[in-house]
């Protein structure tokens, strides 16, 4: 049974699990440093052009932003319970929760698409025809597009990884519990959620109490 999950060069499943999750945590560390670079740039420009950032922050759609935050948090709940269910032997429940995670992730991207369409209609793209005159407002929206865009790429990669789990898990429910893939994929999905949790106040809550 355990032989089916064990891959070289590992001697036993426990060491394989430790190595996979350790490797994943190191990868996540590099991921948050990538986003931290963007956060640092955002912080510097916000410090230099506070008025422009507050004015631009009021132009993002807080309804889409808040609903999408709730959706990602719920998808994190689904995949967290999926792992616990798989380890407790509830393979079918785990599989259904993976499908729920995928549906919620897709819903996030669809809503993001509607939000982008609204932003484009309001000409909130840095360059000619940008509606706000304050210094730094265009820089805020450069960060908005880059941060949400890079995050959306991460959501897409996460969806592919969770989709792979769901496809492989459907053929073999025991694989979900025994393989280290479930743990590693869930860690990545949670990180995507954590990044959004930090993006939310920077992009959607900024400037709401001012003006």
């Amino acid at each position: 049974m355990s032989g089916a999950f064990l891959k070289p060069p590992f001697e036993n499943l426990e060491r394989q699990h430790v190595a996979v999750s350790f490797g994943m945590w190191i990868f996540l560390g590099s991921e948050i440093l990538l986003f931290a670079g963007l956060f640092a740039g955002y912080g510097v420009y916000r410090n230099l052009c506070p008025d422009g950032f507050l004015a631009a922050g009021r132009e993002t759609d807080i309804v889409y932003g808040t609903i999408n935050t709730a959706i990602l948090m719920t998808s994190s709940l689904a995949i967290a319970v999926a792992g616990r269910a798989a380890r407790a032997g509830f393979g079918k429940m785990a599989w259904r929760l993976l499908i729920a995670t995928i549906v919620l992730g897709l819903l996030f991207l669809v809503l993001k698409g509607f939000e982008y369409r609204e932003d484009i209609e309001k000409h909130l793209i840095p360059g000619a025809g940008f509606p706000l005159a304050q210094k730094g407002a265009q820089i805020f929206f450069t960060y908005y597009w880059v941060m949400t865009g890079v995050h959306a790429i991460h959501v897409t990669c996460g969806l592919i990884a969770v989709g792979r789990l769901a496809v492989a898990g459907r053929r073999n429910l025991a694989w979900l519990a025994g393989s280290a893939s479930e743990d590693a994929t869930a860690l990545y999905w949670h990180l995507v959620d954590v990044i959004w949790i930090v993006l939310y106040p920077l992009l959607y809550l900024t400037g709401r109490a001012h003006g």
């Binding site: 948090m73 994190s76 967290a80 949670h190 954590v194 106040p201």
Partner: peptide, 21 residues
């Protein structure tokens, strides 16, 4: 405002890290 929203974001990230992860 910024400090409060970032503190709450840190608390949320902490919850995800400690319980979900």
């Amino acid at each position: 405002n910024l400090a409060v929203s970032l503190a709450i974001a840190a608390a949320k990230a902490g919850l995800v890290g400690v319980v979900f992860m």
